[in-house]
Simulated scan of single mutants.
Amino acid sequence: MEDENKSNSQEERPKSKALPLFIFLFLASLALCAFLFFKYAKTAKIIQQKNVDLEIAYKILDLKADSLQSELDFTLEQLENRINENLALEDLKEDLREKLVAQKATLASARTRIGRLIAAGGASSESSNGGPKNLLEAKSLITSLQQSNTEYLTKVEQVQHDYAEAKTLAQENGAKASEFRVENDSLIDINTVLEKKLSTASILRIAGLTTLAIREKKGKQEIVDKASKVERLKLSFSVLASELTEKEKKEITIRIIEPNGAVLTKNTSTLSSSDDLITLSETLTYDGTEKGIAYYYDQEASYKKGTYKVELYHNDKLLDRTTFKLR
């Protein structure tokens, strides 16, 4: 009997331990279900509120697929026309031209993307949340597209305006520099002409070189052509006028060459035919005006028959020559 009671008491002990655990798990599951229920209810309420707000916004904007498509087309047309106007500028900077061409491609991509949203929104039923949402997103993208591109094109036009002003200023400065260059070249030309005039003005120009054989008879000069009667030679010439305004001393060298090629010098009838020998060396004052000059050559030795040559030099440059003949 005692053994049977012990057996019953041992069976009741495990049952008494399992009951509290079961109750705990049951209560925990109830709490978890309640938590999930309230969380779902809260989330559903938020989603429902968003849908309500979306419906309200959709109704306020009165969005329609056709009107949005028209707005998109109008916006893109305005932007593309503005881009084309800038591209038509002849002096448009090349880097800006490349950027504007790339921007046209960007607008084409935006047209495709926004057009798909509008098409999806228009195809959805009014009760579907996808329709209003797509149309609202399309509306937002159109607004953003217009604003961002307008700002971008304004910056591009400002850069082009600054570039055009700088180019105009550079051209004006270039024109002024060209004018200064022309004026400077003109001054150089004038100076060159003046230098040439001055250089040529100081050069003696001789004309009318003549040589006469003369003798003194009764206090007068008589022209003779017989070698035995010649007492002196008269050399005369004219110094031509020039633009020289200051007086200058000019050295004149005269060579009289006998028929045999010898150069006459004073007190000598014949000398070596060297080019270094001279007959006369005179100094005249030259002021640029035309004047007649006469020099005389005398020698004790008698003159020979034949043709004589007369050469007139200045600074080793032959200015004139003539001949005369004695019989």
Rank of each mutant, 00 (worst) to 15 (best):
residue 224 V to F: 01
residue 214 I to Q: 15
residue 271 L to C: 00
residue 273 S to L: 01
residue 214 I to K: 14
residue 270 T to Y: 05
residue 278 I to C: 02
residue 219 G to N: 13
residue 251 E to G: 01
residue 281 S to N: 09
residue 233 L to I: 14
residue 299 Q to D: 15
residue 257 I to L: 08
residue 232 R to N: 04
residue 274 S to F: 00
residue 270 T to Q: 13
residue 254 I to G: 08
residue 235 L to E: 07
residue 264 L to C: 06
residue 281 S to L: 07
residue 220 K to C: 12
residue 265 T to C: 02
residue 280 L to F: 11
residue 294 A to V: 04
residue 258 E to D: 11
residue 301 A to E: 10
residue 266 K to F: 04
residue 228 S to D: 07
residue 307 T to Y: 12
residue 215 R to N: 07
residue 237 F to Y: 14
residue 221 Q to C: 07
residue 285 T to D: 10
residue 220 K to I: 11
residue 219 G to C: 06
residue 239 V to C: 02
residue 290 E to N: 10
residue 218 K to E: 15
residue 302 S to D: 14
residue 266 K to W: 03
residue 256 I to A: 07
residue 301 A to D: 11
residue 221 Q to A: 08
residue 263 V to F: 06
residue 232 R to E: 10
residue 268 T to L: 00
residue 241 A to C: 00
residue 216 E to H: 15
residue 278 I to W: 05
residue 266 K to Y: 05
residue 299 Q to I: 14
residue 246 E to T: 12
residue 272 S to K: 01
residue 260 N to V: 08
residue 269 S to E: 03
residue 249 K to F: 07
residue 300 E to N: 13
residue 251 E to A: 06
residue 219 G to A: 09
residue 229 K to P: 12
residue 259 P to F: 13
residue 242 S to R: 00
residue 215 R to S: 14
residue 261 G to L: 11
residue 214 I to L: 14
residue 280 L to E: 02
residue 231 E to V: 02
residue 287 D to K: 04
residue 304 K to G: 09
residue 225 D to K: 12
residue 291 K to W: 14
residue 219 G to T: 02
residue 252 I to V: 09
residue 276 D to Y: 02
residue 292 G to D: 13
residue 255 R to W: 10
residue 304 K to M: 12
residue 268 T to D: 03
residue 303 Y to H: 04
residue 305 K to P: 09
residue 287 D to L: 07
residue 237 F to E: 01
residue 237 F to D: 02
residue 282 E to G: 02
residue 231 E to G: 06
residue 257 I to W: 05
residue 270 T to G: 01
residue 215 R to K: 11
residue 306 G to D: 13
residue 240 L to H: 06
residue 221 Q to N: 03
residue 275 D to L: 00
residue 215 R to A: 15
residue 253 T to Y: 03
residue 291 K to P: 15
residue 239 V to K: 05
residue 301 A to F: 11
residue 256 I to L: 11
residue 246 E to S: 15
residue 268 T to C: 01
residue 233 L to Q: 13
residue 238 S to E: 03
residue 307 T to K: 08
residue 266 K to C: 03
residue 233 L to W: 09
residue 255 R to G: 03
residue 289 T to G: 06
residue 279 T to P: 04
residue 289 T to A: 07
residue 286 Y to N: 10
residue 292 G to A: 14
residue 226 K to F: 02
residue 265 T to V: 00
residue 222 E to N: 09
residue 241 A to V: 13
residue 262 A to T: 06
residue 302 S to L: 10
residue 214 I to V: 13
residue 284 L to E: 01
residue 270 T to H: 10
residue 275 D to P: 04
residue 230 V to T: 00
residue 294 A to D: 13
residue 237 F to H: 06
residue 247 K to N: 13
residue 253 T to D: 08
residue 215 R to P: 04
residue 291 K to Q: 15
residue 296 Y to D: 11
residue 234 K to T: 00
residue 216 E to A: 15
residue 230 V to N: 11
residue 249 K to Y: 05
residue 301 A to W: 10
residue 246 E to Q: 15
residue 224 V to M: 03
residue 285 T to Y: 09
residue 255 R to A: 11
residue 228 S to Y: 02
residue 226 K to Y: 06
residue 287 D to R: 06
residue 256 I to M: 12
residue 223 I to C: 05
residue 298 D to I: 12
residue 262 A to H: 08
residue 216 E to G: 08
residue 225 D to R: 07
residue 226 K to S: 01
residue 243 E to D: 03
residue 293 I to L: 07
